[in-house]
Nucleic acid binder design. Structure first.
Lengths: 237, 237
DNA sequence: TCAGATTAATTGTATTATAATATGCCTTAA
DNA sequence: TTAAGGCATATTATAATACAATTAATCTGA
């Protein structure tokens, strides 16, 4: 197995197996090879294999029992809010369908997060949102600055400002969804300033402690992307 | 360690350590004991300890590196959407604050899920929602039947009907949030029929394919609980 | 035909040994 | 005195082996 990055052996095996499971390379009926077979296949010790199996089990992908072997759990049990699981999912091809599901989730989470930010965010929290908006405006004006990064910072800062750990916990999920979304919806870099200003309106609403307005502005923002994607889905048939 | 249920050794150690970490029994600075110390403390082999450590690491609670030992990860990295993690959190005392956070999340997720169910749920999906409502009505009329169970079935069936795997994935989270909510908000069993009928209105809206109405009805339902909790928080000071 | 015992396959746990990693100390030279 | 580099050391990472526990499948006997 190629040594990639700083990951240790069991982590690399976890990645490889996780990816394969989600890609559907092991059926739910047949399950995975036995520990012994995996040892041989990867040329590693049982220790490493077992640790990988435990990590995947902890993420809900598999379960293992004596005599029965290692089984693939139903996809409904996979912890999709685990960063690794999400990554493996996207490795298997981010279809337009998944993108739509992402946007449906964002439409639930982010407007509510914006409202909570307006209600409960500290001044410092809100200042950070403002900084992100400034970053987006600079990026819109200067092609050398990354718009994507500032965009992520904006959405993450709102989740943080919601002062609700369950919302903030979704930052990786939202970031991933946003990134995938951007890949599909950004045709030209012409309207970057318009986008930045739309984000600015959300910031202003939060700054002025207007939860409903912040929520509506955020809904609008995500709905725009949704409209775009639905058109694309229709075109793709 | 007491042998509880069918869990094997490493799973029991995982539970015990997970609970302790979330209860704050190990500081982020000091971290956990070394593997060797944990072996001695629990009287088990390093194999079992390491597998527990790997599982907790997979859930974002800890990380371990050579020479450095086992560190507690910042709480922001804990995967709160993992069923076990959520359980350990509640073991450490479900405060009114957590309850409020739960309701804020439900207010984001469930109305949107109801709207999606009205738009995309299959007839079979919606039939199941109807069954859950019937179950609630029976429970409201007959004190021998569990209202709680039917209530959970209702909310879960809507998540399923959303036809979005990310919403359905939250069924454990929502169920937990709902259970905690019920423990706090159900004083008497007098208004059970009213509650069942409120749920029935959501079902009817979904059945009639009225996403906006379904969303609003669900928002109303959860807002009721939120109002109750906010009053309780104010009273508790 | 069925209940119960037996067998065998697989994971679960323990033990020991060695390797890899990273921290902090120690040495050395500028 | 201080900074760079190497060395010792603590801890996890990996491997190998042995045996125990679990459970599915098979066999046995009435």
């Amino acid at each position: 197995m190629a040594r990639i990055e700083n990951l240790n052996l069991s982590q690399r095996v976890t990645n490889e197996l996780g990816r394969a499971i989600i890609a559907g390379e092991y059926s739910a009926e047949a399950g995975l090879p036995t520990e012994a077979q995996l040892c041989e296949e990867y040329g590693i010790s049982r220790t490493a294999v077992r640790e990988a199996v435990k990590m995947l089990a902890a993420k809900g992908l598999i379960s293992s029992r004596p005599r029965q072997g290692i089984r693939v759990e139903p996809a409904a049990n996979w912890n999709l809010y685990d960063t690794s699981v999400l990554k493996w999912m996207l490795d298997s091809g981010p279809s337009l369908l998944v993108l739509k599901e992402f946007l449906q989730m964002r439409l639930a989470i982010e407007p509510q997060a914006a409202a909570l930010a307006a209600e409960f965010g500290t001044d410092e929290d809100i200042r950070k949102i403002g900084e992100a908006v400034e970053g987006m405006k600079r990026a819109a004006a200067d092609p050398d600055i990354s718009m994507h990064e500032a965009d992520l910072a904006f959405h993450t800062s709102i989740l943080f400002a919601s002062r609700n750990r369950f919302f903030f916990q979704l930052r990786d999920f939202i970031s991933t969804a946003l990134s995938v979304s951007i890949q599909h919806t950004t045709p030209a870099k012409g309207n970057d300033m318009v986008v930045a200003e739309d984000h600015g309106k959300i910031y202003t609403a939060i700054l002025n402690r207007q939860p409903e307005r912040a929520k509506n502005m955020m809904t609008y923002l995500i709905d725009e992307a949704m409209t775009f994607i639905e058109a694309e889905i229709k075109r793709a048939g």
